[in-house]
Amino acid sequence: MLTGTETITESEEAADRMGFARLKPRRKSFVPDQTWISHMELIRDHRDKEAFAAIFSHFAPRVKGFLMKSGAAADLAEECAQDVMVTLWNKAHLFDPSRASVATWIFTIARNRRIDILRKENRPEPEDLPWGPDAEPDQADVLALQQESSRLKAAIQALPDAQRDLIQKAYFGDLSHREIAVQTGLPLGTIKSRIRLALDRLRHVMK
């Protein structure tokens, strides 16, 4: 239950080679985002180390790769990836699945750690919104957010390699938003729907 594999069928790979990926994001049998949320709940409510190990094995190598691509040496990236995972455990009760996917939450922790270690700087964060993490999030909001996150990931995955590389580089600190917009176009439509969703959610809560 706690493990998953990423497999792509041969026919889908063929479709990719033939350039169909942009028309139809490839379907993959992978750990659905909802599973990561269940894992986070197991960590939060039961301090479940098996669930933690599953998240670790998927995300820790990604965080280490992200930190190395951002300019950290391998040993520093290793140390920080471990720190990020410890933070995930210690702050599991602060994770809000109606506002972020598990991957997004991990990205923000890793980014802040990167600023901390590579620049020796604090990263100012906006103040908290007027609702707390202890309020149980609305399940419809959680579902909408996770579906949107899955679509976003699929859209990025479906990009031609060169364009996807640009997006990655931007988050590794190499490219501006405008350069991405000029050179890809596609994910920005998805970003815009994500913004609408976020605004709707804020309006809903702040009424």
């Binding site: 990604r62 280490k64 790769g65 391998a74 997004t104 949107e148 976003l152 859209a155 990655q168 988050y171």
Partner: peptide
Amino acid sequence: AVGGAVIDAASTPTA
């Protein structure tokens, strides 16, 4: 959220 999708994408370099 885009940053999260980038981190999670199958194509993202891992170490």
